[in-house]
Each structure stands twice: as C-alpha cells, then as structure tokens.
Design a binder for these strands. Structure first.
Length: 568
RNA sequence: GGGCCCGUGAUGUAGUCCGGAUAGCAUAAUCGGCUUCGGACCGAUAUACGAGGGUUCGAAUCCCUCCGGGCUCGCCA
C-alpha cells in the first residue's frame, strides 16, 4: 500500500483554501525551475483568469489564508505569481527512504490491474537479416512493455513474421537460380539476405525476372510443393538467425504469428466485406476499400493474391479473440503511419469495436550519413555487426582498466556495449528521425548507458565494503547536506516518473530521469564519504541512502533493458 | 500537388500536447579538481529556440505565411 506522497499533502492543504479540484491541483502543481525557490509550486496565472485578479496578489492572499500543519511542509512562500512550498527535509527523507526500503524492487510499481496490453514488435521480413532500425524498434518495444508492467498491466509481447510476399520470393528465386543448393556458410539469416541483394542486382540487367517473381508468388499461394519446400528451408534459416539476434539483444516473445498462416483468413474477411457491400470490386477485378479522405486502398489483387494489409486485418481480430486486450500497440516505423491509419479505419468499417484500442507506436527513421538504409543495395547497418563493433569498443576500454580472464572480458564488454547501444536508441523521443554516425554516435561517457552502469557499480561497492547491512533505524536529520537532500528528492519522484513514462510510451523520459539521478549520486559520492563518515550514525544514514539509490537506479536500468555489471 | 512528421549552442538533444520564474542536459572546446567508498568521475567558462507576421500582460510552446529536411499518397512489406 503506497504511502501518501508530499504532493498529496500539499493538495490536502490547498483544497481548503483554493477553489480547485484535486485533479486540477495535481495537474497545476509543478517543480520549480530552481530548487532554491521551493520544492513544489502552484502557479497562480490560471486562477487569475477566474478570480480576475493579479496572480501576484492571489499568491499572497492564499499564503495568508493557509494554516501550516505540523508535518512534511516546512514553509509556504508567495514569490511573485507563484506559491512555493518547502518541505521538512528530515521528514521527506524518512518517508521516501522508508518507502523504498519497504517496497524494494517494487518501488513505484502499481498494483495488478487484470488488464492485458499486446505489444507487437519487431515484425521482420524473413528475407534479410535485422538491421539498426530493428534494434531501435526492439529497444522501444521491450522498454514500453516493461514500463506498462510497472503500471499493473499484463503485457503480451508478440512478434509477427512477415514471411510471405514478393520480397520473400526475391531471395528465393535468386537462391533457386544461383544458389547451387548450398547450405549456409555464415549466420543463416545473413546467408538468405545475400540472395535478396543478389536478386536486386540481377534484376537491374534482367527486368524479366520481375515477372518470374509474380509467377512464384502465385505458385506459392497455390501451394506448389517445390516452391513451398524452398520457402520452408529459407525461412528456417532466416528465423534461426533472428532468434540468435533476439537472444543476444535480450528480447523474447510470448507469442509469434506468421503472415503465411493468417493471410488466407484475411482474404476471407475481405470477401465477406465485399458481400456485405463494405468493399467493392473495380473493372480489373481487384477488391478495394473507399476510405473517404484517406483515398482508396487495394485489399486483394485481381489475380486473387493478397497484399500486406490483408493479413493485418485478420491478425488484429485474432489478437483480440485471443487476449481481449485493453490496448494493442504496434511498434512500427513512421514510414507506415499511413498504413496504420488505413488499417484502423478498415477495422472500423468492418464494425470491430476493438479498432479504438489499437495504437500505432510510431518511431522515426534511422539514416546513415549517406542517406536512407537500403537492404536491397546492401547499404544497411547490420544488427549483428553493430553489436560486434560496440563490444569491440567496450572491450578496448575494459582492457585498458582491468586485467581479467578472457571470458570475463568478453562478458563484461558485451554488457557494456549493449548498454551504450540501447541507451543511445532510447534517449531521444521516439518520433524523431536520426542520423547514425558510427564513430560519433556511441560514447561511453556522459549521458550514456555505461555511465549509469558505472554509478551502480560505485553504489554496490560501497555497500560491499561498508561491513554492515543497511537499516532504516537511522537518524534522518543527519541527511542534511545539499547533495543528500537533492538525491533524496529525486528518488521520491520515481513513482510519478514511471507513471508519466509508461502513460506516454516514452522511455526517453526515463533515460533523462536515470541520468539525472546518476549525476546526483556522483555529486553525493564526491561530497559525502560513506564508509569514512564522521560518525557511525552518519555512516548508517548514508548507507541507507546508497542502498535506496541502488534499488531505484537498478529499476531504471532494468526498464531500459540494460544489465547491471559487477565491475567496470 | 494532398496528408503527416521534424527544424533549439560547433554537434546530439530535453522542453512544444496543456503558453508563465534566469530555455535544461550531454559531447566536443578552454580552464580547474580529485585519483579518496574505483577517474567510464566532479566543478567552472563560452556558445542556441529556421524566418516573418499575428493572438496575449507574457510565445521555443497557440494561429497564419514562408524557408529547409524527411516519410507517405489502391495492387512493396
């Protein structure tokens, strides 16, 4: 059972004198730009409109009416148009640190809701290996999933393999013609991808290959044994390769769908929609939907083969039937914004109420200095290679600092490299495009994943060397240095940050919080000795603070998909 | 041409939904600290809201026009 927060105390106090609802007050109250101004502020601009008075006089009038109770609030000051609240620091420290102590790794988490959210990612095509875009996708998908779990949701992580269609046929045809029935001599998804690139090159000189692709797709949909056999073989290669990458990146799925198994049901739904007059057939025989201002969209080709959206329509229904989700989130790049507007509109046209529960979590494109990544031309940042590169960079740093066994070096470098990568991918807001410059983009210093890991190592080491276990039986008034107070206040904000981050599907809010928290801890570390503290009592008090920091920061890392390390 | 998104110091970004206190942060630069519970650290300095109008007591934030970039617009996924 969460205890009452300071903010709630302030709201209690204000509802007695200000004519605003608790909800409005909660919305209005903000943290001042400078902590010297106060710990919490009520801006009075909003009130000045209804009261028809100058915000400055309102602030001072409210101040006069308030009777300060004994407790968490030390002082209330009217500063210009703001009413600023100052907290009793020892009390604040006590309530915050005791709560963290009690709730441990559950600090900030909400109680279970018995509601399900389905999160779909990264939905790859099985004709080429995963690239940097997929890594952005997966770090977002995984982090959002974990964040939703903190808010009490049951999260079902779902992957969809786009394993049929013309693009799949391209790598198949190239293999069939020029692959000599070879077995993979490298990571198997890369092997498949090579044939996709090969097809594009050959097709430039031989445009007639495009016709063979259409024929192959028809043969595939007609379940031609030879085509299906080849398809099975190559899909396995692709999927085996993906699984290795998922494992290394630290994602897994509760359910995996395959487009090849859902597209036929999609076709049926479209034919049914045609019967009901929701869709229509044009002169060529293709089936279309008229979406009004969104234009028109092909749902089935004249030759009867299905398109990308065909299976998505059925899959949305299938997911709902299976999970009765409260929300269905599609983590897909912004280039598909139009696709999802169309999809959700069609679901509505078909009369599905769950259409309103579907949400496209769109994220920006990743570019290279040379422009857009193109798998067909081989100009992509490959996911596996990138992880290798980062491990290598981390490894150099590790060797500089430590003499370790080879296996330990590898293990440590991998965790640090991944931390740098994931943090980098999550730290800017999802909807922004970004350019990836291999040399400049990834750093291990400053606002980075390794910095967070490092500060956690420091916190852990202090606790190990302290010789005593942390306890809450301490004198909270001893935690009165600015570094200590600032850190405690920040720790107290964690539950609110989780709510905000999860509610807006914005992990970048959490990266910002975690980094600021780590900075405050570093400042505390510089300014306040723990083990060699002036007194035994102070040591105990600081040890609890370190322990609290450790728990909260570890939570942050976990929600960002970053692993803790033992040494750095 | 239509729709959607983006433009903040040298670089990368937060803040924009819902307008308010000196626009926050990191990297790079310059200077400094400490190497002490581990320096992948800490402190200091300098540098920014694409342009122009409008609304407002007040605009990075809202409205309009323009400029620059991106994505997308029935049979790729």
């Amino acid at each position: 059972m969460p205890m009452k927060t300071i903010k709630e105390e302030v709201i209690d106090l204000l509802t007695k004198t200000v004519k605003l609802s608790r909800e409005d007050l909660a919305e209005l109250l903000e943290t001042p730009s400078d902590s010297k101004l106060g710990d919490l502020a009520l801006p009075c601009f909003h009130l000045s409109k209804t009261l028809k008075k100058d915000p400055k006089t309102i602030a001072s009038e409210i101040r006069e009416k308030i009777k300060l109770p004994k407790g968490l609030i030390r002082e209330v000051k009217a500063t210009g148009p703001y009413l600023n609240f100052f907290f009793e620091e020892a009390k604040l420290a006590e309530s915050t640190l005791k709560r963290i102590w009690k709730e441990r790794e559950g600090y900030g988490y909400k109680r279970r809701l018995n509601k399900t959210v389905v999160v779909e990612f990264p939905a790859p095509n099985t004709n080429k290996p995963l690239h940097l875009g997929h890594l952005r996708n997966m770090s977002l998908g995984e982090s959002v999933s974990r964040l939703l779990e903190t808010q009490g949701y049951r999260v079902v992580r779902v992957n969809l393999n786009n394993d049929r269609g013309v693009h799949i046929c391209k790598s198949m045809l190239a293999y069939k013609k020029w692959g000599d029935n070879k077995e993979p001599d490298k990571k198997s998804d890369h092997f498949v991808g090579d044939f996709y690139v090969m097809f594009s090159q050959k097709a430039k000189e031989h445009p007639e290959l495009e016709r063979e692709i259409q024929e192959m797709l028809i043969a595939w949909e007609a379940k031609d044994p030879e085509t299906i056999g080849l398809w099975r073989k190559m899909n396995c290669w692709a999927l085996d390769g993906f699984n290795e990458t998922y494992k290394r990146f630290g994602v897994s799925f509760d359910k995996v769908y395959y487009e090849s198994r859902t597209y036929e049901k999609g076709k049926e739904m479209i034919l049914e929609g045609l019967k009901k007059g929701i869709f229509y057939k044009d002169e060529s025989g293709a089936i279309l939907a008229d979406l009004g201002e969104l234009g028109k969209k092909i749902l089935l080709r004249a030759d009867g083969t299905s398109v990308y959206i065909t299976q998505d329509i059925y899959l949305a229904k299938l997911k709902y039937d299976e999970y009765h989700y409260e929300k269905s989130i599609y983590v897909v790049a912004s280039e598909q914004n139009y696709h999802f507007r169309v999809l959700f509109k069609i679901l509505k046209m078909l009369g599905f109420k769950f259409a309103d529960k579907c949400y496209h979590l769109s994220y920006g494109m990743v570019y290279l200095p040379s422009g857009r990544m193109k798998s067909r031309e081989g100009s992509v940042v490959d996911a596996d290679n990138l992880m290798d590169e980062l491990d290598g960079m981390a490894e150099k740093e590790v060797r500089k600092r430590h003499k370790l066994k080879e296996t330990e070096v590898k293990n440590l470098s991998e965790k640090i490299g991944l931390a740098a990568l994931k943090y980098f991918l999550l730290r800017c807001s999802a909807n922004k495009d970004f350019v990836f410059k291999p040399e400049e983009s990834i750093s291990f210093e400053g606002d980075t994943g390794p910095y967070l890991q490092y500060s956690l190592v420091r916190a852990k080491k202090i606790q190990q060397k302290a010789g005593t276990k942390p306890t809450v039986s301490i004198d909270f008034t001893l935690l009165n240095k600015p570094e200590e107070i600032a850190l405690i206040k920040r720790l107290g904000e964690f539950p609110g940050i989780l709510e905000k981050t999860a509610g807006s599907y914005s992990p970048h809010i959490l990266t910002e919080y975690a980094f600021k928290l780590a900075t405050l801890f570093s400042q505390f570390y510089e300014g306040c000795q723990v083990i060699a503290a002036e007194s035994e009592e102070l040591k105990k008090a600081r040890l609890l603070l370190v322990n609290s920091y450790y728990h909260v920061q570890k939570s942050c890392l976990n929600l960002l998909g970053i692993e803790e390390v033992g040494i750095m």
